[in-house]
Write a protein that binds this DNA or RNA. Structure first.
Lengths: 201, 201
DNA sequence: GGACAAAGTGGAACGTGTTCCTATTTTAGA
DNA sequence: TCTAAAATAGGAACACGTTCCACTTTGTCC
């Protein structure tokens, strides 16, 4: 497609296309923030992004793709923001708990948005595997970096395994909270317990 | 309601009602086995159960309720079947891994059914909290019993916490498999790693 | 057994995700 | 600049979860 802009890893097309994509994702986030998963209606997204319904489907082949892509963009922002900030805490467990709780609090400050994105993530099937994988990598890299902030320590297989288990627990806790089956406090507790079990050294 | 049948803990109504409920759940399982979540269509369930659509909704207020109730019934069966069988394995970790892998294999032998039930479980909101909680309790009790088969050992808080974390990992692994993001082998591996991390003593 | 309430039937109707079609606009290449 | 291809607009149409309604059957109480 675009032969001029060869710098970007992902080819996002022309400026107009990039702009449309951005408008669509912005509209998605806005609607999700206001009314959660159910409020992200494809017709409403198209209208708010000033795009035809067919065009919306050309950019994102389903509501789930749309929401997972929005999640990916949000998560990348969070991850970048976190990268610059120094990580407080002496022990590994402390650092992981601090960072996870902070992130969780951030998500819980916009419950509707979190609900929409988490729901989409859980419902995504194989056709969204690429986006999902991207998010999973971001999470794992975030966790392992928190575990070994120096950066020069070699990551062991066990580190990665632990990061993965923590990610699983985090996701389960988030789903419990999003679906109204547990409170914010319980969510934090659940994560803390798991981290302490896994990082007791 | 029924004053005669006071033995049952849950009042399930008349024999006709119990029969309808059973027919509906049977139809649900059949359709789910054949075509997964998407194939469980409310009109199809009603027809196969020989029940009007309105009646189906009287028994189960939504598709999610229906599927989670089916999951509950299936899980109760599995759990009872497992209860009678002796648990092989010397160490706690071995026993847990054996049981979990066996259960997972059982589910993977009916992929469509597993997909339908897991999807529903993940999508359930607060209105299904009761049924979800029931399933969660079954899983935890199953795990703790495997961890302490003698029955006379007192359950510590840590035992329950570990069981919960394992349950979370299991669920995440299952979702990954159901949504086509990981293979059956990876699912087993994921569980095994987590259990070994949590039960290393 | 008659009357009343509860449960069930059959099907229309509505909302939202998704698909599809035609006309118009934008873009790329000669 | 002209033309063919690609992208977009606008909106109808379809599928399935869900609701609703008028009518019939079943169950209960006197």
């Amino acid at each position: 497609m675009s032969t001029t802009n060869s710098l970007a890893v992902e080819d996002l097309g022309s400026a107009a296309q990039r702009d449309r994509r951005k408008r669509i994702l912005d509209a998605t986030i806005t609607l999700a923030s206001q009314g959660g998963f159910d409020a992200v209606q494809m017709r409403a997204v198209a209208e708010q992004a000033d795009v035809a319904l067919g065009t919306l489907y050309r950019y994102f082949p389903s509501k789930i793709h749309l929401l997972v892509s929005a999640l990916q963009r949000e998560f990348e922002r969070t991850e970048t923001a976190l990268r610059d900030r120094p990580i407080e805490g002496d022990t590994t467990a402390e650092r992981v708990i601090t960072v996870l709780k902070r992130t969780t609090r951030g998500m819980q400050s916009d419950p509707q948005l979190t609900e929409a994105l988490t729901r989409a993530f859980m419902f995504a099937d194989a056709s969204v595997a690429a986006e999902i994988h991207q998010v999973g990598m971001l999470l794992t890299s975030m966790l392992t970096r928190v575990m070994h902030p120096e950066g020069h320590t070699e990551l062991t297989e066990e580190d990665v395994a632990i990061a993965r288990v923590i990610g699983d627990v985090w996701l389960s806790a988030l789903v419990g909270w999003v679906t109204g089956r547990s409170t914010a406090a319980e969510t934090g507790q659940q994560i803390e317990v798991a981290v302490k079990l896994l990082l007791r050294d």
